[in-house]
Design a binder for these strands. Structure first.
Lengths: 216, 216
DNA sequence: TATACTTTGTCAATGCTTTAACAAAACAAT
DNA sequence: ATTGTTTTGTTAAAGCATTGACAAAGTATA
């Protein structure tokens, strides 16, 4: 058991992927799996898998492997997806709309409780079963409902002011889809930046490298 | 100059972020910057910045720093955003729709040339200035237009078959928004997975860790 | 019950990334 | 011109993450 020590970021980032693979195996009716077999399926080393699981105290059994259902539940617990945190979405444009309707928040530890926008044409419409509220009512809403995280789907130039305001209203974390970098702005506020533009540029680099290799 | 050697993934992943910060500085009219000052702005170490730029051959000048415009252009060239690769989008649902309309492909090295869907109700509608084509015409289209990358915005269960087909039609890379993992499937095919669900779960973990720290 | 096999948990070794340190080079000011 | 300051490019050290190796502990089989 090393649960008290800080677990490294690379390990944490791999947990959702383990969770996905285990869910699939569970659905297929598979009961147990060895680190060896899982490593082949996932394209990792067996050693890394054992090392990863051991950060939280080893759920396996020698000569047997890991019980899939148990391991799946353990990882779910580590990630904390069973305590549903309250999420609000800021910005009901194209991207915000897609995020609200496309994702299953429930099985990822969240409940989307409200959507805000400052465009009068959008306020009052229904998105993903929720009526879009006016951004002016954000403060009052937060004081009453105490949401845990905010999903930022607004233009980059409004990101900083909105984030600052939300932090002052007690928000504990951001899922940030704006180009603006929130990472180094606050202490003790969780931030997940989803920089789609950066990701696309990285793909661009890869494509060009492959082209170089083929042609040169 | 180390350009021949393979540059490591962490370095490449930081390039788009440098590019963003430099663009902003350029817009502000700043002409030069030292690694020290940039490090403060970006929350990195100056050493890392110099090390990163040196992978491609040092664009700075001792006692002066880096010329912002030049550095910005160099990084753009390294990423290859000036040769516009052709991109097609598969799946014009909520997410596909948002991707097509929300992102500026042009300044990230791509041109979105077509959108495909297999839903007859969606085929023929216009999304982001492009008429949605029928997935049945994909093969013919690819043979004629030779797109470079495909953006996958389809349900996970169709990801593998679609990707296999696209690879056989000459696609060189994927921007994969499905839950399905494409990483270990092909040789010499570029893949950028955008696992939004994984990202959300990671945020969930962070929130719960902060809560533990506050309460325990 | 004994024997052979499997597979974990863990320690040590390797490999990779980041940070620190500093000489060499350019700039700035007198 | 000279002197002091700035700041890079680069080498060396420190810090992490991944992989390899193996004893210990379980399973499976006869």
């Amino acid at each position: 058991m090393k649960e008290n020590n800080q677990v490294s970021v690379p390990v944490i980032k791999r947990l959702p992927r383990y969770h996905r693979y285990l869910e699939e195996l569970k659905k297929m009716g598979v009961v147990r799996i060895s680190s060896k077999e899982l490593s082949v399926r996932m394209g990792l080393t067996a050693s890394q898998i054992r090392q990863d699981f051991n950060c939280f105290g080893g759920f396996g059994q020698q000569g047997y492997g890991y019980n899939i259902e148990q391991l799946y539940n353990e990882i779910g617990n580590i990630l904390g997806i069973n305590n549903k945190s309250k999420a609000i979405l800021i910005g009901a444009g194209n991207l915000g709309h897609a995020i609200a309707t496309h994702l299953n928040f429930q099985n990822k530890g969240f409940e989307l409780i409200s959507i805000f926008d400052n465009n009068p044409e959008v306020v009052g419409t229904t998105v993903g079963g929720l009526v879009v509220l006016n951004s002016n009512d954000l403060e009052e809403f937060c004081k009453k409902e105490k949401p845990d995280i905010a999903i930022l789907c607004i233009p980059a130039e409004y990101a900083a002011e909105n984030a600052d305001k939300l932090v002052s209203l007690g928000i504990k974390g951001f899922w940030n889809f704006t180009q603006y970098d929130l990472v180094h702005r606050y202490e003790n506020i969780a931030v997940e930046n989803v920089h789609l533009g950066d990701s696309l540029m990285t793909l661009c680099y890869q494509i060009n490298e492959i082209d170089k290799g083929v042609e040169g």
